[in-house]
Structures are given as structure tokens and as C-alpha cells.
Design a protein around this nucleic acid. Structure first.
Lengths: 124, 124
DNA sequence: CAGCATCCTCCAGGATACTG
DNA sequence: CAGTATCCTGGAGGATGCTG
């Protein structure tokens, strides 16, 4: 008696939750950048490009809170802080990359659908 | 010479885009509900529960525009409108479900990490 | 029934300035 | 260098009322 599908409302809400967690503007960018190894704050900032310092801090704190990233402070002068993916953080990348692959493969179809829809909407 | 990883900024932005597209509050709920077959507007509304009529409309229009859903109007009185997943819409579910599975498996670890983080933050 | 129009609230996220 | 503190804006999303 396996559950028929994933369509029960509660299940879908759990899905929605994680997608929203990971679907904000910067989270996957940050995680992606960290997948090769630890990085420092401003190193991340430069590598990502376009992220405000406030949002980088916020995003990193969130990732740290959820156990995706560790923060290591070296109390030198000037201070140095390394961010590194945890095991959980690395695992997260697999399903995210699966979605990314799908996205890459279907970007064209989606854009075509959009163009068609917009053209149809414009002609009346 | 395969691309080393998916960490190029542009790639990650594409990922981020699709995740934001699908990571809004209602999209996956609607898609999930439609995966068994076509549904009418208010049928969806009731099944999902908690969604405002405005957001259901908005979400469905977005899904239609991107080619994930078709809208069929039966000009009866009163009118009847069926929404149905396209092939593309069905395909989308696979990677989304993969992420959902991951989320289900790791919800406990995440919640534990959060509890730990919050406890540590509270004690000073 | 399946919506559009309108108004309102809240917060993600940016800009800027300051600090240990 | 790696942040915190403030202020501000746009847009996601809800509530309500009206209509073909």
C-alpha cells in the first residue's frame, strides 16, 4: 500500500517549502560557488557578482542555520572567515543539479511557449 | 573536455531562474494537483485550499504561458474551464519530485540543525 | 463558474553609512 | 576584511466586490 502519488496536499506543501527555501534569489548561487571548496566572504561576493553584502550575509546565515554551510572564523587581523559546504550541503546539490539539467534542456521549449503565448495575447 | 562543474556563474543563474520560477508559493502545488488529470478552476481551488482566487489565476496563467498547462474553455452556461498538464508539465515533475524526495529524507536533519543553531544563538 | 479590477500589507532585497 | 544598522522600494500575495 504505497502512497499512490505525491499529490496529497500536505506532501506538496513540503515540496513547496523546500523549493521556496532554495528558490530565493541567491541560495543556489552561493551553494554552487562553494561546491569546489571553502571560500572567504569577499571572494564569494566577487565570484557571484551583483549580490549585495547584506544579502550575502543573510543567505549565508540561512544556509548555516539549516546545516548546509559551516562558518569558520580565523581571528587574525584583518579577520578571515571561511564558508564551506557540509555533507548535507553537498548532497543538496544532486537534486538541484537534476532540476538544473532539466532546465537547461527545456529552456528553448519554454521560451518558445512564452513567445507563442505573448504573440497570441498581443494580437487582440 | 567536459565542463568541470556547474559552477560557472551563468549556469548557476539559469538554475536560480528556474528555481525561482517553480519556487513561488503555489506553482508546485497546482502542478501536483493536476498530475492525475484535468481539473476545473474551482476544483483546483478547493483541492489546494488556502489559495486566493487571484493567485490561482495568476499561477495558472504563468503555467500556461510557459507551456506547462493548457487551458480549455467550454462555452456552456455556466462556463467551464479545464486545466491540464502538457507533456512538458508532466516532465517537470520528475526533477521536482527528486528534490521533494530529498527534502522529505532530510527534513529531520535540517530541523535538528536549525534547533542547534537557534539554541546556540539564544544562549548569549 | 470563472474570472477581472482594486486596494492594501508585508517583506525580499538593494543602497548607503558606519565599525571591530 | 567581514560584517552590522538603517532606510527605502518593488512586487508577491491576500481581501473584497463586481461581471459575462
Amino acid at each position: 500500500m504505497k502512497p499512490r502519488h505525491v499529490h496529497r496536499s500536505e506532501d506538496c506543501r513540503a515540496i513547496s517549502d523546500i523549493l521556496q527555501r532554495v528558490g530565493d534569489k541567491w541560495t543556489v548561487l552561493v551553494v554552487g560557488m562553494l561546491s569546489d571548496g571553502p571560500m572567504r566572504f569577499n571572494e564569494l561576493r566577487k565570484a557571484i557578482g551583483g549580490i549585495s553584502q547584506k544579502m550575502l550575509t543573510t543567505t549565508l546565515r540561512g544556509l548555516e542555520r539549516d546545516g548546509f554551510v559551516t562558518r569558520t572564523l580565523y581571528p587574525t587581523i584583518p579577520p578571515r572567515v571561511d564558508y564551506e559546504l557540509t555533507e548535507l550541503g553537498h548532497q543538496l546539490q544532486e537534486p538541484v543539479n537534476a532540476l538544473a539539467d532539466w532546465a537547461r534542456k527545456n529552456t528553448l521549449r519554454i521560451n518558445q511557449a512564452r513567445a507563442r503565448y505573448d504573440a497570441a495575447a498581443a494580437e487582440d
